[in-house]
Design a protein around this nucleic acid. Structure first.
Length: 801
RNA sequence: GGGCUAGUGGCGGAAUUGGUAUACGCGCAACACUUAAAAUGUUGUCCGCUUUGCGGAUGUGGGUUCGACUCCCACCUGGCCCACCA
């Protein structure tokens, strides 16, 4: 037998598989199916580092395992190539984005091809391909038709460096997620998607998903549902009313002022009544120009201006309250106005202290004690009402409803989730398929005219004017109105990076379909994605956007299931040895090409899966990888001792145990322990003088998903003419997994005092008797009677004295 | 500030979910093979002691239990996410 030559073997099979089309998917649409999907990458210019393929290895192993178990498997790959990262790379390298993307994809594909994936490349998609984005545009048109896409002029987040508006989700602590610049507020004409219409369904349907609890929790927090009440405060001497939103209607009697967001429309309306308008106007101006991060920093000192000359009336007790404008009140949440209860809200407490406003306690923890302890801080806990008129003594929770009713308020639900700012003032994105007509207003591009192709341009750098570079191309912009044939101009904003990835998993099902988004029958069969593998950083963007669009498509009748991804598996990062992110910037990048060259793709696959729990962050170690290589070499060498036999011999029990363990671990994405079991098996094979061919073949089959090249080579050397990857996954016999004898642990007072081999079918009584009979135990008991004897079958006997 | 998550040998980690703590791998040490090295193999490798045995140890301190890495309470330390959401 030749040495294990990974270079020769891997090259040989890479070429052979491609030629034979081993991984092509047949659309028979019958039998059990498994749709196994990776979050597709955006092809960055830096190429892959060893962290990137970790998730792809897992989905590759899983999909091979499923195929060997008789499933029809859909396991495709594609490119998310529109958007800021690709465009910024292009600008930096002075390449047209189209050229840069093409180049980067080629590089990515080349690197991936070395790693032994079983993708069906016939299904490859690319979000920047017009035949793809025609359907992205089509979905937008449907959203527009149904009133779920609307034009807005509200101030939004603006990145001065990327020169584009951004969605709420694109910020990281008030900074641009892409370039780290401090984001400004800027009023901008933009297109916005009404994702908030789906807030409740997005929340509700999380229940049924087999997703990590932490991701579900992030989504819940992001959607941020809170039940509360809207209550009107009349402004004294006017017809104006301030509508506030509160989750604590029970504290209404404790309100000592009312605060409005500086942007609140009422402020302008009240101008004639306000005596200190100059000061107020100054404050409004300052807060408008303040970057959001400064305004909302949690430890920031609270500011505000009291509006002189106006008073709000507390509807509960008729008290007159001062009105403030304060930028800690957010214009876009609730009603943009709050009733302030310093005694029972931390923010109001701080504000009241600063402005020397009264603090009135209305919830008491110790009711009916006559005197509540004096508050030293806002009390936000439970209790009963005091100083609240006829509601005194009522439970706070109950009072929420009663007081709301008493003042004619309305119970309502608010969400933190904001509508999705969907336009970017950048070149490299899907054109929004709308036309602005002088007469008809905004008109949809007819479906038959899709796709609206992104035109070729010389200058594609962002302009910073609030328009995309497309606005410069007169011959593209100026069109006839599809309705009246009058003068029209194309919408020049483009879609955000997240558009194409919000539905791509559907396109894989039917990538060549020119007539509709997806064939209904095929969709019904393949959807939903059975296992979706990707990083946890997508919890609140991609995974919310995709669920939103999917639900919309479900409402349209395009898809058959309300949720796109049944099961989600998070892949943990691989960091550099120093624990830092792998990045060109730190110079700590390990290139998979080098590892493949030195050890082979199979070793890399085994190593990355063995490093630790799949969803956990682990540090790369160039030292430990040798263990994976040694394991494969040992598995390879086991061929030396083969004898022509199908019998399991003394390996039979371990074989069945190993099949069980490896199968269950792959299903559960516990690849580290699966490999550990394969190592145990290999070590046992190594000890055999003569190894039955049947046992070895069985081992090679369960090794195949992990080390596909080596397994295929061995399989061929064993004389097989067909691929091991089309073999049937071995089954185990549950009877043979069980041990006939095991080592019983005998404890005295919980401490191990003796061990002895016992028959597996020995019952409780037998075990007790057996344990007490052991000479060593007898000696230690010194004839005393045990107080208690606990017997755990299959494990231990614990004698308590 | 809130939420989530983790803390086990020199290192990565395992432990059937309350039942022998440290599987598997890396590293290290000794030995074998070799002129030598690499590779490979064998043995050993949590700590301590008066070493056929005994005691201690899963971030710290307490609790529940016959029995706790696992459950409960408090605290310490890291990582991730959200962050004035009324």
């Amino acid at each position: 037998m030749a040495e294990y030559n990974h270079k020769k073997i891997e090259k040989k099979w890479r070429e052979a598989w491609e030629k034979s089309g081993l991984y092509k998917i047949s659309d028979t649409l019958k039998g059990p199916k498994s749709y196994v999907l990776d979050m597709f990458p955006y092809p960055s210019g830096d190429g892959l580092h060893v962290g990137h393929p970790k998730g792809y290895f897992a989905s590759d192993i899983y999909s091979r395992f499923k195929r060997m178990n008789g499933f029809a498997v859909l396991h495709p790959m594609g490119w998310d190539a529109f958007g800021l990262p690709a465009e910024n790379f292009a600008i930096k390298n002075k390449l047209h984005p189209r050229v840069a993307v093409k180049k980067n994809i080629a590089r990515f594909k080349e690197q991936l091809s070395l790693l032994g994936f079983n993708y069906d490349w016939d299904r490859e998609i690319n979000t920047t391909n017009p035949e793809y984005y025609r359907w992205t545009q089509w979905i937008f048109l449907k959203l527009f038709e149904r009133g779920l896409a609307y034009e807005s002029h509200e101030p939004i987040n603006w990145c001065p460096s990327c020169k584009t508006g951004l969605a709420n989700e694109d910020l990281e602590g008030g900074k641009c997620e892409r370039c780290g610049s401090i984001v400004e507020k800027r009023p901008l004409r933009q297109w916005v998607l009404r994702i908030t219409d789906y807030a409740d369904r997005l929340l509700q349907d999380l229940e049924g998903l087999n997703w990590p609890a932490s991701i579900k929790e992030s989504q819940r927090n992001w959607i941020g549902r809170s039940e509360g009440a809207e209550i009107d405060f009349t402004i004294k001497g006017t017809d104006f009313k301030i509508k506030v939103f509160t989750t604590r209607a029970d504290t209404l009697f404790g309100a000592t002022y009312v605060a409005l967001a500086p942007e609140h429309e009422l402020v302008k309306a009240l101008r004639p009544e306000i005596n200190n308008w100059k000061k107020a106007a100054e404050y409004i101006e300052v807060s408008r120009n303040k970057p959001e991060i400064e305004r909302t920093a949690a430890d920031k000192e609270k500011t505000g201006v009291k509006l002189q000359g106006v008073k709000a009336i507390n509807p509960a007790n008729g008290e007159e309250l001062p009105i403030f404008i304060a930028d800690y009140v957010l214009a876009h949440y609730g009603t943009g106005a709050v009733m302030a209860v310093p005694a029972h809200d931390e923010r109001d407490w701080v504000f009241a202290k600063k402005f020397k406003l009264p603090i009135k306690q209305v919830i008491c923890q110790f009711y009916p004690e006559p005197k509540c302890p004096v508050l030293e801080d806002a009390y936000i806990g439970d209790g009963k009402l005091v100083s609240s008129g006829k509601f005194n003594g009522m439970d706070a929770e109950k009072a929420k409803k009663s007081i709301t009713e008493f003042v004619g308020g309305k119970t309502t639900v608010k969400y933190k989730l904001r509508d999705w700012v969907f336009s970017r003032q950048r070149y490299w994105g899907e054109p929004i398929p709308l036309i602005h007509c002088e007469k008809c207003g905004v008109v949809a591009v007819p479906e038959s005219d899709l796709p609206v192709k992104l035109p070729e341009v010389k200058f594609y750098e962002p302009m910073g004017t609030g328009e995309s570079p497309l606005a410069n191309i007169a011959e593209w912009v100026n069109v006839k109105c599809p309705k009246c044939s009058g003068k029209g101009k194309r919408e020049t904003n483009t879609m955000p990076q997240w558009a194409g990835s919000s539905w791509y998993y559907l396109r894989y099902i039917d990538p060549q379909n020119g007539k509709e988004l997806v064939d209904k029958k095929k969709e019904k069969y393949w959807s939903p994605v059975d296992v979706y593998v990707g990083g946890a950083e997508h919890a609140t963007r991609h995974l919310i956007y995709a669920r939103f669009w999917h639900k919309f498509l479900y409402d349209l009748g395009v898809v058959d299931h309300p949720e796109p991804f049944s099961r989600l598996q998070n892949v943990g990062l691989i960091t550099a040895k120093d624990g830092k992110k792998m990045s060109k910037r730190y110079g700590n990048v390990v290139n998979p090409d080098d590892i493949v060259e030195a050890y082979g793709a199979d070793t890399l696959r085994v190593y990355e899966m063995f490093m630790g729990p799949f969803d956990q962050t682990v540090a790369w170690s160039s030292e430990s990888i040798i263990g994976a290589r040694r394991f494969l070499e040992k598995a390879w060498r086991a061929q030396n001792n083969l004898i022509d036999s199908q019998s399991g011999g003394n390996m039979e029990k371990l074989s069945h145990q190993t099949i069980k363990k490896v199968s269950e671990d792959i299903e559960g994405f516990r690849f580290n322990t699966a490999i550990s079991q394969l190592m145990i098996f290999t070590n046992a094979m190594d000890e055999q003088e003569e190894l039955s061919r049947g046992v070895y073949e069985l081992f090679i089959k369960i090794l195949a998903p992990f080390a596909p090249h080596m397994a295929e080579e061995i399989w061929e050397q064993l004389g097989h003419k067909t691929s091991i990857h089309s073999e049937k996954w071995p089954e185990y016999n549950p009877e043979l997994v069980k041990e006939e004898v095991y080592e019983l642990v005998i404890q005295i007072n919980g401490k191990v005092r003796d061990k002895a081999e016992v028959d597996a079918d020995l019952g409780e009584d037998g075990l007790r008797e057996f344990a007490l009979k052991q000479p060593r135990i007898k000696e230690l008991l010194e004839g005393k009677d045990p107080k208690k004897v606990i017997v755990v079958r299959g494990r231990l006997v614990n004698i308590v004295i």
